[in-house]
Design a protein around this nucleic acid. Structure first.
Lengths: 332, 332
DNA sequence: CTGTTAGCGCCTTCAT
DNA sequence: ATGAAGGCGCTAACAG
C-alpha cells in the first residue's frame, strides 16, 4: 500500500505510463474508455501520484511558507487563514512557521524555503531586514514581504502605515487626556516597533511635547510584555494619564495590572491598543484601538503571491498599503 | 542561483558527487581538507541540497501535517505550537491545515498527506471517523489522533475525558445554582460535541433530572455560535439559571448577549465554558471553565508521533488521556 | 490516440 | 578515503 507507482498501474491496466500520467493531468486527450479503465485500476490498487516525484520533475511544490513571529497572537492566525484562503483555491498548501521573533529562526526558515524549493513565501520579519529575502528571489521563489519593501527586486510588499496609525492613536489620547502619556512597545529592532514608536513621538512633537519627556518602555509584543512594561512604569513612580500600547496584547497586560492595582480605566488611566484582535471586544472596558484588518492583509498578500506564482505578474515589486482606522471604544 | 546541483559543486570542487553528498550527510568519513574545500565551493556557488530530491530518494519528507478544525480558536494555535516544538527539534516541519470542521476538507487533507508522502499526521477530526486514518497508516504514515482511537491499528491517540469533564462542570453548576440549566454546544457530529453533551446529560441524571427537561441547543463552536444559541434560548422564553457551554468561544458569545440584554453574570445567569483559552481570563467576569491543557496535549501528541517517525516505537497504538481540571472563577 | 525514453537531484550500494 | 552508476516516481519531448 502507498507504494503503488504509476508503472504498476500502467502494467495492471495494460497501457503505458504516459497514458496513466495523462489521464491524471489532462494534458492530452485520452480515450474515454481507457480513461475510465485506468481510473478504476488506480483506485483498486490504491494508487496515489507521488507529489514528491511530481515536484522533482516539475520543480513546483505547490507549497508556500507563511512566516509569522507569534502564532499565539490571534492577529496572525486570522491573517494566515486569509492567506491560505487566497492561495488554497489554486491548490497551494502552506507551511505556517513561527519564529518567536528570533533572528536565527527567521533565517532558518528562509533557508528551508530554498531547500524545499517552495513556490512562495509570505514573510513577516521582526529581526531580519527585507534584504534577507533576496536569495529567495534569486532562487525563483515568489515573495511577499509584510512591511517595508526592498528596492529593485521582484519582491512585493503589503503593510499598514504603522507610523501614521500610531500617531493618530496618540493624538487622540493627547487631545482627550492631556500630555501625560506613555508608550509601551515591543522593541526597537522590530520594524513595527520602530515605526509605531516613531508615530508616537511624531504625535508628541506635533503637540509641542518633547519625546524625551515621555515615558517609553520596550518589552515584548505579548500580554506578559504588557504586564512587565506597566509594572516597570508604575514601580518607577510614574503614572501617566494614558498609555498607548503598540499592540493589543500589550494593552491586555496593561489592563491586567491596572485591575490588580485597582486603577480604573479610563478614569484613572486610559489605554489604547493596536490591531483590534478579538480580545479587544472581550475585555471590559472594551479596548479603543487601531483596527488593522488582518484578513485583508492576508487576502491581499495571498493575491499578490498567487499572481507571481502563476506567472500572471513578473515585473518589479508592487507595494500596497492597507487602510487602518482608529476605533474608539471604552478604554480611552 | 537556486539551480546549482550537487553535480556542479562536485565538478567545481574537482571531486565526485559521492564525496559532496557525504560531506553533507556525514555518512562516511571524508578527508578534512577535502571537506573544507567542498563546503567552500558550495557556499560560493550558493548550493542548497534539494529537499525534494532527497525526499524522493529517501522517501522521508521530514514534514508532518497538523489538522485542526479552526485555527481561529486560540486553543488550536497553542496546541499546534506545542506539537511543532515537540517535533521541530528533530528537523520536522509542519503543514498546519484548517478544516473549518468540514468533512470534505478533512478528507482532502488526509488525501494530501498520502500524496505528499508526509512522515506524520496529527489529526483532530470533527466530521470524519478515526477509521478514515487507516489508509494513511497503511501507507506507512505515523499517526496520532486527537480523540478516540481505532482498534487494532498502529494509530496512537491522545484525548481529554470530555464526558467526565463536562459532567463535572455541570455538577458544579447544578450544586450551586439548582436544576435550571441549559447546554449550548457545537453539534452532534463532532466527537467533542457528542461527548460533552453526554457528560452534561450524565450529570443531570445523577441529580435526578431528566435530560429531556433541559434546554439543549446546538449551533457552532464559535463566539457567533454562542450568540446564536443564547438568543435562541432567550427568545424562546426560556431563561435558565445557568448555561454550560461546550467551549469558551461559545461562552464568550453567551456573555455578549447577556451584556447586551443587561443580564448580570453570575447573579442573573451563570456561565461556564470549556478549554480555558486566554480569553477566559480576559472577559469580565472571568470565566469559570474546564481547563484542558492545550500545550500538554500538543506536546504529548508530538512526542508520540516522533516515536513512530523515528521508529523508536512500532507496536500497536498507545492511548493517552490527559488530565483536566475545573477552574472556578467569577462567571459561575 | 498511444508508447518509449531521457532526465529532475540526490543517495547508496558496489568497486577500487 | 574516493568514484561510478542505478534508480526513487513522474512528466514531456519525441515518435508512431
Amino acid at each position: 500500500m502507498g507504494k503503488i507507482t504509476i508503472e504498476e498501474v500502467a502494467a495492471e491496466a495494460g497501457v503505458s505510463v504516459t497514458t496513466v500520467s495523462h489521464v491524471y493531468s489532462g494534458h492530452r486527450p485520452v480515450n474515454v474508455e481507457t480513461q475510465r479503465h485506468v481510473r478504476e485500476v488506480a483506485v483498486r490498487l490504491g494508487y496515489r501520484p507521488s507529489a514528491v516525484a511530481q515536484s522533482l520533475r516539475s520543480s513546483r511544490t505547490h507549497t508556500i511558507m507563511i512566516v509569522v513571529p507569534d502564532i499565539t497572537n490571534s492577529f496572525y492566525p486570522e491573517y494566515a487563514r486569509a492567506v491560505q484562503d487566497a492561495v488554497g483555491g489554486s491548490g497551494y498548501h502552506s507551511l505556517l512557521c513561527n519564529t518567536d521573533a528570533r533572528e536565527d529562526e527567521e533565517l532558518a526558515f528562509l533557508d528551508e524555503a530554498i531547500s524545499r524549493r517552495l513556490d512562495g513565501v509570505v514573510f513577516t520579519g521582526f529581526r531580519v531586514p527585507p534584504t534577507a529575502l533576496v536569495p529567495l528571489e534569486e532562487a525563483g521563489i515568489a515573495i511577499v514581504n509584510i512591511g517595508r519593501s526592498v528596492e529593485g527586486k521582484a519582491i512585493d510588499s503589503v503593510r499598514f502605515d504603522d507610523r501614521a496609525a500610531e500617531a493618530e492613536a496618540t493624538e487622540f489620547v493627547l487631545d482627550r487626556y492631556g500630555p501625560s502619556v506613555a508608550l509601551i512597545y515591543g522593541d526597537e529592532s522590530a520594524p513595527v516597533g520602530r515605526e509605531r514608536r516613531d508615530g508616537f513621538e511624531l504625535a508628541l512633537r506635533n503637540h509641542g511635547i518633547s519625546p524625551s519627556a515621555a515615558a517609553i518602555v520596550g518589552t515584548a509584543f505579548t500580554r506578559a510584555g504588557g504586564v512587565r512594561g506597566m509594572e516597570l512604569l508604575l514601580d518607577r513612580g510614574e503614572r501617566p494619564r494614558a498609555v498607548v500600547c503598540a499592540n493589543d496584547l500589550i494593552a491586555l497586560g496593561v489592563m491586567d495590572v491596572a485591575r490588580e492595582r485597582s486603577l480604573r480605566i479610563p478614569e484613572d488611566i486610559a489605554v489604547v491598543g493596536y490591531d483590534d484582535i478579538d480580545a479587544a471586544t472581550i475585555v471590559t472596558p472594551r479596548l479603543s484601538t487601531v483596527r488593522t484588518d488582518a484578513r485583508k492583509l492576508g487576502a491581499v498578500a495571498g493575491g499578490l503571491l498567487l499572481d507571481r506564482m502563476t506567472g500572471a505578474i513578473d515585473g518589479p515589486g508592487r507595494h500596497i498599503t492597507i487602510a487602518h482606522e482608529f476605533v474608539v471604544r471604552e478604554s480611552a
